[in-house]
Structures are given as structure tokens and as C-alpha cells.
Write a protein that binds this DNA or RNA. Sequence first.
DNA 1: ACTTAGACGTGGAGTATGCAACGAAAGTTC
DNA 2: GAACTTTCGTTGCATACTCCACGTCTAAGT
Lengths: 276, 276
Amino acid sequence: MPNLRILSGSDTETTGAPDVARPKVRKAERRKQILLELKLRPHVRIGDLAELFGVSGETIRRDVEALSGDGLISRAHGGASALVHGRYPAFNERAVARIEERERIGRCAAALVEPGETVMIDSGSTTLQCARFLAFNGTDCTVVTNSLPIAMALGSGAAEVILCPGDYLSAEAAVVGVETVDFIERHSVDRCLIGASGLGAEGPTEAVRGFAAIKRAMLRQSAQAHLLIGGDKFGKRGLARVGAMAHLSSVVTDTAPDEALSAALAAAGTELVVAP
Amino acid sequence: MPNLRILSGSDTETTGAPDVARPKVRKAERRKQILLELKLRPHVRIGDLAELFGVSGETIRRDVEALSGDGLISRAHGGASALVHGRYPAFNERAVARIEERERIGRCAAALVEPGETVMIDSGSTTLQCARFLAFNGTDCTVVTNSLPIAMALGSGAAEVILCPGDYLSAEAAVVGVETVDFIERHSVDRCLIGASGLGAEGPTEAVRGFAAIKRAMLRQSAQAHLLIGGDKFGKRGLARVGAMAHLSSVVTDTAPDEALSAALAAAGTELVVAP
DNA sequence: ACTTAGACGTGGAGTATGCAACGAAAGTTC
DNA sequence: GAACTTTCGTTGCATACTCCACGTCTAAGT
């Protein structure tokens, strides 16, 4: 990465020189500025950037292509856009391929929420899809969540949104920590919608430990609990146990589970909902 | 607005009809879906939307143009992009024209924060600019904020971000309410960066009452307080008083204030910083 | 049944963007 | 100081997108 070397060099020479005619270190400066620009605006045009920096569009295009190659921004025809909210940059195929299933699960789970109810929604891509459908349906409910994208998706609609406090985790665009759990424990709701990293006969598990505590707290504070989980997670096991199967009122998924899991669900009295 | 009539009509006839072949109300449905899509992704392409809905690109283009005309989305060559984060849709010229000043103020204020410090940052467009520069500088600090865009802008960098709880306000993409104030009062920091709707000789004022309480709480919990405010707000007066001038360690602005205000600042011992 | 208006698709002209290759100017190294 | 590298502009061409005009279809009104 030769540009990093130049980058650090550029910082050292920002001595109060006049703004005009600075023939050095333009490239790194430009790219940092582009990233900065995209932190505020979701989308910038090639032409605007070219005019802003006083360089040709072709140069900006090279910058944008380089940044896009590094996974720092997303490319679009005629410009560049910021990365998707709350998405770890290290996903490409799988998450995109599964978006169809997530939507089906989310749509189905959103139908479970009645107007006027209070709901807790966990962070996660499947639950985010569900929140989108809640907003789309205009369901008039009160939602407690630790996910920023979910708050934003629901907040501009009919729902009332209460956000949990906590340490911000940029990879998930959500908050975690003891503050979050403590806050959840001070609230009680009609139902909660949570996700998980895996589901076995003994119950749902979560790979991220901090999240497990939050999901557990949500389970405790809800009259009804719904697990939203794709069929690809069946049989998988995260390191932390979220709760027993019996804590779940229902499991919403996209494919029917196998014998063993079905039996475990039936034994625990957990309803199985397969999204069409 | 003929489309509004059609929109409301579409809502009433969502009787559990089969999903296939619904020749009615496609337009309103599509536009709602486009808006929903942009809540998640910052940018969508015309071609993708056309394929998604199974309509021609020209139709999508008409939708996008209409939504753009209503100020709900932003247009781009080849697609549509979401509006700027945390911005009320009801502003057009003034805020855009002031973006240059906000950047200057933000850059200048970000330089006040030393590595390792703890900081509270209020929601607002000027403070968001400041947060961008903090992220840009890579200042290694701990930030308490009630603004979602600020959390997201800072969270992916070197800073540690703690988000306040509260009722989500979509117009500002921030949380407000008693939970927020209570949370702030349980923390103490080295300095706070706040904005305001107006600044007179008696001190800063805020137009939104819920925000005033938050700013006040931040002032109380900070060893040093910095007000970030554009010169266009001098002499303006919001309905709620945020605090006395003496509570402010410094005022960061872009233009020098008049005699009366300068005298009030000097009398209160408040430092005046004019961004170059 | 006829009319009318709105919604949507189609086709072609015009423009903007992307891509690749070349070349100039400045910096770097020996 | 010469050769090399990097950065950036320019050119030409392929592609994608936009804009405009017109035609068809459906739904609602008379």
C-alpha cells in the first residue's frame, strides 16, 4: 500500500501554507475527503467531486474505483455511495443470496404484531427486514430496539421507537453492553422478535456473546417471544446459549426443519411458522 | 396532488387478495417500496428497481422524478439516493448554502478535542460536521451522544461511542426525552459540544423544547462546554433557554459577532473562536 | 356503451458515463 | 543528471442513461 505512506506524509506537511497551488499529496487528500464526504451525504457524483477538487473526472473515477476496491465505498453509475448501514463490510455473496429468504421471514413475522402492542426487536439483518415490513404495513406499535437501522426504518412511520443505550458497535450498527441489558430489564413488552446464529434441539444460540445477553434479557421481559431464523442456521451452534426452547412462543423460518428439531419444538410447545 | 388520493385509496383495498396479478394501485405501492428500499440502502439503480418490480425503466424514472419533486429522495444519474442523514426534509436552500460554514466550524471545534478525552456531542447538523472531522482526524476519544448519525460517523473510526437511550425522533435522527436526560446525568465528561437555534447576549436558546433539556444536561455534566453556532443565528431566539452565557467555555462560530454580543461574551469569560 | 384521464410501455435521438490506451509532467532513485 | 515511477490529463469509443413523443391499455365516469 504505497498510498498509506504518502497519506501519513501528507498529514505532517499541513503547515499553514496558502490554500492555492499545493502540488503535493493531492491524491491521498482527495480520497480522504471523498470518504469524509460520504460519511455525511449518502451519495456523491463524479462530476461534483471533479469540480470540487478541480481535477478531471477521470481522476476522480480512478479514486472512486480504488476506494471501492478497498471496500470502503460502494460504486454507482455516475458516482459513489456509502456502504449499506449496519453491515459488516466482509460479506458479499451469502448475505445477498439470502436476502430473499430474510424478506419472507420478515414479512411473515411482521404480521404477528398487532396494532397497539409493545414489541422488542433485536438487531440483525433478518429482524431488520421484519422492521421494514412493520414500517411498510404502518403498524401502530411501540418498539424497543438496540439497532440503529431498525430505529431509523421504523421511526419515520407510524410506530413509536425507543432506543436502548449502550456501547455502539459499528459492525452491526447496534448498541451492546451492560447499559443495554439494564435498560431492557426496566421494560416489559407484549412480544419480542429476535434472531440467532444457530438453532438446535436445546434452543437458540448466538455467536456474539454481548448479543446473547441482550436477547436473553428481551426473552425475559416479553410475554411472547418469536425467533426469526433462516433454515440454513438449523443445527448450527454459537458459543453462547440464548435460552431454552420452551422460552420461545414460536419460530419463524423459511424451510421446514428436520425430524429431531421438529420433535424438540413440539415437546417445548413452540409453534413453528414456515414463511411461504 | 392527485397521487395522494390514489395512495390513500390503495391502502383501503389491501384485502387479503392473492399476490399475483394485481393490476391496481401499482404506482403507490412501488413508490412506497422505493422509499423503503432507500431507508436501507443509500442508493438504488433505476435498472434494478425496474427489474425488481417487473416494469420498464421509464416507469421507475417517472416514480423517482415524482418522489424527488416531493423532496423525499435525491436524484442521481442512473438511480436515486437517500436524503442526507438526520435532516428534516423541509429544508432546501438555506441549509445547503450554509454547509460550507458548518464545515469550517466543525473542523475548528474538532481540533479542541484532545486524544483520550471524554466528550458529549449534541445532535444537530453543525455538530455532525464536527463529528465527521473527529472521525477524519482519528482522534482517540470516548463520545456520548444522542444522535444516530454522529454515532455512526464516529463509530467506524478510532473513537468509542456510547449512545443515549430515549424516544427516537426521526426528523432529527436523534433520541430525546427523560430517559435521555437521566442517562446523561449519570455520566461526566471533559467537554461537550452543543449546538443551538439562537445566541443572544443572555445565552444560547433552542427552538425544540426536548432538545433544550438535553443540552442543559450536557452543560451540567461537562468540565468545559463549547457552543458550535453559525453567525446567522446571532440575535435569534428559540423558545427555551439552554443556559447562561457563563456556562460556556467557548463559542465556535464562522463570523465575528457584533459589539453587544462580543461584550456579553467577554463579560461572561467565554472565549470566542472564529473559524478561518 | 362511450368517453376521458391516467398509467405504462416502446422507440429513437441526445447526452453522460465508463473504459482503455496513450502521453505529459513531476517526483524519486541511483 | 538520466532512467524510472507515479500521477494526472486527454482522446476515442463502447455502453448506459435520460428525455421526448407517441401509442396502448385499464379504470373510472357519464
